[in-house]
Design a protein around this nucleic acid. Sequence first.
DNA 1: GCCGATGATTGATAATTATCAATTACAGCC
DNA 2: GGCTGTAATTGATAATTATCAATCATCGGC
Lengths: 239, 239
Amino acid sequence: MKPNQIDNAWQAASKCEQCAIRHLVLFANLTKDDFDYLHQPIKELHLNVGETLYNQGDEPNALYTVRSGLVKLVSYLSDGSFRIIRILKQGDIVGLEALDNKAYLHHAVILKTASFCRLPVEDIKSLNTHSPHLFTQLTARWQQTMSDADIWLTILTKGFAKQRVAYLLLHLAEKTETESCYVPNREDMGGILAITTETASRIIAEFKRDRIISFLSPHLATIDKKKLLVITHGKNHDA
Amino acid sequence: MKPNQIDNAWQAASKCEQCAIRHLVLFANLTKDDFDYLHQPIKELHLNVGETLYNQGDEPNALYTVRSGLVKLVSYLSDGSFRIIRILKQGDIVGLEALDNKAYLHHAVILKTASFCRLPVEDIKSLNTHSPHLFTQLTARWQQTMSDADIWLTILTKGFAKQRVAYLLLHLAEKTETESCYVPNREDMGGILAITTETASRIIAEFKRDRIISFLSPHLATIDKKKLLVITHGKNHDA
DNA sequence: GCCGATGATTGATAATTATCAATTACAGCC
DNA sequence: GGCTGTAATTGATAATTATCAATCATCGGC
C-alpha cells in the first residue's frame, strides 16, 4: 500500500467519523482504530431520478448507504412485468446481498434524487474479520431488511386495493421527516401493491376528491393519516 | 465452567461434526477448534404437527436449524386475520432475528413433524467473535432468508389466484426431495396467498378434476409440474 | 358400524378488480 | 402560443374473487 492511499483512507475515515448521519449508518459504532481497515476512501455518489445504482445480475463489489433520497428495488418477472420489492430511504443499506458474493438480486433505481456512500465489499469483510464492532450493525441491518420485507408482505396482503393503497401511503409517510410524503407514480404503485395502474389511479383520484390526499407537486403530497388509518382498518360505509 | 459441562459441549460438538446434514447447516464450515466456543451442548428438539417452536414476541435466546419436517412462520394482523410469512424446510434457520436481540417476529408452528437443533444465541455470538468461519454461513443464511422473502412476494404478486396456487405448489415441490409434495390445508394456503379459504379450495378442487394434482394423503400429493408451469405463465384457454 | 367434529367442497350472489379504450392534464420545447 | 409526448384519469364491460350459506367427506373414538 502506498502512503498516499493510506492517507486517503484516513481522510475518508475521519470524514466518516464526522458524518452527520453516522448514527443512522452501518459504521455507527466503529472506533477510530476500526477505520484502519478501510483500504480505499469511502466514495460518495449522487444520482438523479430514474438513474440506476446497479442492475439485477451485476457483479456486486459494493454495498451502499443511502445518505438522502429514495431508491426502489425492482425485480422483473419472466412475463415482462415488474415488481417493486422495497423502497429504501436515508440510513438504509442497498445491496446487502453483495456480502454473499451473489449477483445483485434487483435493479436499484432512484425515485428521488439520492446520494450514497459506496462501501466496498472487501473492506467490509476485512473490517468485520478484524474488529467485532461491525457485526452488530450488520446483524441489525439484515434484521431491518427482513422486517421491512415482512411489512411489504403485509401491505400486499391485507385486504382490498383501497386498503392497501392507504397502508402504502402511511408507510411512505413514515419514511419522511416532513409532513409531506412521497407518492410514487401510479404504475409504480401498481408494482408495489400488485394492482393495475388504472386501479391505483382510481383510488388516488378518489382520495383526492375526498381530501385525503393533496398534491403539492407531482410526487409530493400531504395526507390525512387519520382517515387513511380508518380505511386501512376495513370498509367505511360513508359516501 | 465445570469439566463435565465442557465434556458435554465437546460431545455435542463431535456430534455436530458427524451430523448427517452438516453440509446444509449453519455449522457447515466450522473447524474442530471452533466448536470449543460452544459452551452448552447442542440440544435436539422434536415437535409434532400443530405444536409451536416459539411465539411472536417471545424473548429470543436461541435460533434453530431445521433437521427435518416443515415449519410455518405466522404473523397475526391487528384485525385477527393471519398471514403465513414463510415456510421452512430441512437446513433452513428459524429465528435468525434472535441474533439482533429482538423479540421473535412470528409464530413458528410445525406443519410436518419436525426436529431441530437449538443454537443458543450467546454461543453463536461468541463463536462469531472468536472465529471467522461462521460469518460466511450467517451471511449466506441472511441472504437465503431475503431471497426467500422475495420469492414469497413474487408468489403473492404474480397474477390471479389460480396462477398463484400453481406457483405455490411448484415452490413447495422444490422443498421436497421426493416426487410427492406437501400441500397445506386450504386455510393456510389462503394465509400464504392472500386469498380466501373458499377460493383456495375451488382451485385445488379444479386441479384435482384436471388431474393436475393427486392426493396420496391429506397433505401429500403428486403434482403435474408441466401443467402447473403452463398455468403459472398465464391463462390457458382450454376447458 | 355409528356419531360428531373438522375440513373440503360447492352454489348463488355481490363486490372488487382487470381489461380495453378514450379522454384529459400537463410539462417541455420549438 | 401551439405541439407533442407522457402520465393520469375516467368509462364500460367482463373476469375474478369475496361473502354467506349449505352440503359433503373423512377420520377418530365409541
